[in-house]
């Protein structure tokens, strides 16, 4: 079977690539299209108030989010998300590098950090809300308080796991402290740091939504809860779809950045595997 198809491929290569392209697109889009169709058909037969058909949701999505409310609700939310995520990555990497390099500091803080990380971040919302009020600062604080930990702990682990021989080599070539950081420690820790950043981003998105759902009067989370409380089901679904799209977009951007930052790492791993 395989040999005969191989022979066909050799005689008509063009036909084969065309087929593969169509097949790939079919695989990529087949299931989503089928699922949407099933949902649409099901929604039009069994009329449930809570599950409108995809067409209705699409309509509501466009009419709700395309226009001024994008500037009013979506952009501020995204800005808070960006500031919060950037702050937690920066703080996590800087503090993590220091804690990872200074042994006694690590020993001093480890149990405390393990505990602080284990606190479910949403329980901090009532606390921060009463201290800072329903401000942007409160939402950003909540985002940082939740998404700092994965970056911080992964950075500590990554910095500690720096190859001992390389550290000795760098020392005997008398690299300065900054040079060692720049060319040895940070690159060595970067795979772990990126793992932490990936987790931090999804936590940051979740906390952005929750912190806006409560103690807030603007933003994406607020709008979705508003729609739900007023039984604007189609618009609420539109909001859920928008959040999903933001999540997907974040994941795509992250994997692009990761591939760039860790290109050398994946390269060495492939060499090691071969």
């Amino acid at each position: 079977m395989t040999t005969s198809s191989g022979a066909v491929a050799r005689s008509r290569p063009r036909h084969r690539t065309w087929q593969r392209l169509v097949g790939g697109a079919g695989f990529a889009l087949g299931l989503p299209v089928v699922l949407l169709l099933v949902w649409g058909i099901w929604a039009s037969f069994a009329v449930s108030p809570f599950f409108p058909s995809p067409l209705v949701i699409g309509d509501a999505f466009v009419s709700t989010w395309v226009g001024p409310s994008f500037l009013q609700d979506v952009l501020p939310s995204l800005a808070r998300l960006a500031v919060g995520a950037a702050l937690s990555i920066l703080l996590g990497v800087v503090l993590g590098t220091v804690i990872g390099l200074v042994r006694w500091l690590g020993d001093l803080l480890e149990p405390l950090l393990e505990f602080l990380r284990a606190i479910p971040p949403p329980v901090l919302i009532p606390i921060v809300a009463v201290l800072l009020g329903p401000t942007d600062a409160m939402k950003i604080t909540v985002i940082v308080a939740g998404s700092l930990w994965p970056v911080l702990l992964n950075t500590i682990d990554g910095v500690r796991a720096t190859d001992a021989v390389m550290t000795e080599t760098a020392r005997s070539f008398s690299l300065t402290r900054t040079e060692r950081l720049r060319y040895l420690v940070l690159p060595a820790a970067s795979p772990r740091i990126m793992t932490g950043v990936r987790q931090a981003l999804s936590i940051a998105l979740i906390l952005m939504v929750i912190s806006e759902m409560f103690f807030s009067s603007s933003g994406l989370g607020y709008r979705i809860v508003y729609f739900q409380r007023n039984y604007l089901i189609d618009q609420m679904w539109g909001g859920i779809v928008l959040l999903g799209l933001i999540g997907v977009l974040l994941a795509v951007v992250f994997s692009l950045v990761e591939r760039r930052v860790l290109r050398w790492y994946h390269g060495t791993k492939e060499v090691a595997r071969a």
Partner: peptide, 16 residues
């Protein structure tokens, strides 16, 4: 593709 699209959806979006 379905998995890659469903997975990043923040679960709290489903609370309402």
């Amino acid at each position: 593709t379905t998995v890659e699209f469903l997975r990043p959806i923040p679960s709290v979006a489903l609370i309402p």
